[in-house]
Design a protein around this nucleic acid. Structure first.
Lengths: 333, 333
DNA sequence: CCCATTATGCTCAGTTATAGGATAAGCCCC
DNA sequence: GGGGCTTATCCTATAACTGAGCATAATGGG
């Protein structure tokens, strides 16, 4: 390492939109790839201008607008990532990069060429249960994790690994918890089942390894799911988990919907993010009796069947009820 | 301001314990007070060692232990505070201080002389509803906020202020939401009802003020509630709000309880943090049928009445149910 | 005009939450 | 040793909510 490390602070944005029932996030192609690298996309990233950015989120809005042309509306701080090994390349330059990640919800619009929309589940194919339990889990993930569990020499370690995989992936009778997105990704990372694990290891070769467990031999096949630069897929997982949790107690979907919408549109947005199908009549009952929406009397006849009434979000609900959300059902077994 | 501002990163800890039904947090007396300042306490604060602290929370644990002798158990990242004006004194030295705040839950123990335990509600007297709605709200807060609302010259601004005070303080028929701790503090800050608002303003004199609204004339009496250094009371408010939310869906109280406890002890801890009284029989049913605890068969006869059974936390519950928590009732009107 | 399609209204049973009555098992005091 | 106080524990009545599905309504397309 070259000299005493400095600390740099940056801002990451997970910018979410839902169109055509697909949840999407905005990615960029970082220009700073190393020669010969495959082109891995990254989350939009920008520095904090300590003099002029009055708050962190204003700084974020500023450079997101500069980089992509997007003017962000709803923005919420997500988490601050500061692990020493989170950005091995910066680390080799003697820089400790701490990044404050934000979640932004927008209505999808076209963006500058430098950026593009990507389906969220391209990065986490195992998170989309809208058509039932993804086959990927039983076909690829569970066997690979079994191999990882068996790769531990000590019984106790094997037991811990088994317990953890069961909980986070809902195996052997444990329920599936849609919010544990990050725990699932981190487990796959530790088990060397995502490409980032190997890449980071290579990037760190020569540095002290602390207590990092030995990688499995033979090297397992990486799972489907698009990798990202640095720890950005971890940030993305954090965002999805947080958003899924937030849906239940804050009316955030309306940030993603047009000002007037049908109830099915709203339901599809919730399903897209939660990753589970919902019961139509109950969803309707929930948002209507919960006072979250009010009918406009206008109809949308683009439905293919009976025209649907257009609804608008009732802002007053924030005043009336402490925690209005849409409430997701538990996935039953 | 002296030269181009640099960015410094620090870590703050909100360390919580509950003893004798009083929720407490650990404070320190910063040695860096300006001459003539009244002694304002601060949250424990320490730097990140970019070279040796592998993760942010390890850095936190390191210096918390060095400063106070405490070895932290449960630690969770809270929020990252980076407003330019959050630490006016550092700012005048040309430093942009970004601070990552953590929440730690411990069982109260004695600490080094440099630190001391303070009741949480000393800082937020209006948050403790265990004996009913605090008189402070109607006697002092509501009138002071009324004056602030009336102090706006434009009707629209007055309307917004009215709406906001109603929502966050549960006035004029709006429900009280125990989680809006930060919103309440920030409202009081904006209304110049907490000492920090005036202090920060004085500290910033000479600097550009942007769109900061003019302070009210005449200067209102500050409300009861102990002030803190910099924006630490804001951090504290964030922590209380987050903890109150978390109680509902994660079994965090057990971090604050001894390994064996009676159900009433557990209930009192929840009440202390949530700030509301709970129905005893229902609390018992909730934690018992929720599988959060299991009886040990041993009895505690220190109760003053019939001896209570001692219970322990069932770790297995994390495996069985996605979101086990104790569930707080809504405050009804 | 029949049919496919989507919207919307309604029911029903099972579950969960709120509130409180009733009883149990200690202690203190006389 | 019994009455009264205190806290623990069990249990029930009622209300509210949830998940699931049936039935009907309103379109457009052959």
């Amino acid at each position: 390492m070259s000299g005493a490390p400095r600390v740099a602070i940056g801002l990451n944005a997970v910018i979410v939109a839902v169109t055509d029932e697909v949840p999407r996030i905005l990615t960029v192609l970082p220009r700073t790839g190393e020669p010969g690298d495959p082109a891995v996309e990254a989350l939009p990233f920008g520095p904090l201008d300590p003099q002029h950015d009055r708050t962190l989120d204003r700084g974020l809005r500023r450079w997101v607008h500069e980089q992509t042309g997007l003017a962000l509306g709803y923005v919420e701080q997500l988490y601050t990532f500061g692990d020493r090994d989170r950005a091995p390349r910066a680390q080799r330059r003697g820089l400790r990069e701490v990044s404050v990640a934000y979640l932004a919800l927008v209505r999808e619009t076209s963006v500058d060429d430098a950026a593009r929309w990507r389906g969220w589940y391209e990065f986490f194919p195992w998170e989309d249960w809208r058509s039932g339990r993804p086959g990927l889990i039983d076909q690829a993930i569970a066997p690979a994790l079994d191999a990882w569990i068996g790769g531990a020499s000590e019984t106790l370690v094997r037991q811990e690994r088994r317990e953890r995989t069961d909980i986070v992936f809902g195996l052997h009778g444990a329920p599936w918890d849609g919010e544990r997105v990050l725990e699932r990704y981190e487990l796959l990372y530790e088990a060397y089942l995502v490409p980032e694990a190997w890449r980071d290891r290579d990037d760190l070769s020569g540095l002290p390894e602390d207590a990092r467990p030995a990688p499995p031999v033979p090297r397992p096949e990486p799972l489907p799911g698009r990798p990202m630069a640095a720890d950005h897929r971890r940030i993305l997982a954090t965002a999805l988990g947080r958003l899924r949790g937030k849906l239940k107690y804050r009316p955030v979907i309306f940030e993603l919907l047009p000002s007037a919408f049908t109830l099915l549109q709203a339901q599809k947005v919730v399903e897209a993010l939660a990753g589970v199908p919902l019961h139509k009549q109950n969803f309707r009952r929930l948002v209507e009796t919960g006072g979250l929406v009010e009918g406009t009397g206008k109809l949308d006849s683009q439905t293919g069947g009976r025209p649907a009434e257009l609804f608008v979000f009732r802002r007053d609900v924030l005043r009336e009820r402490p925690a209005p959300g849409v409430g997701l059902p538990h996935v039953r077994r």
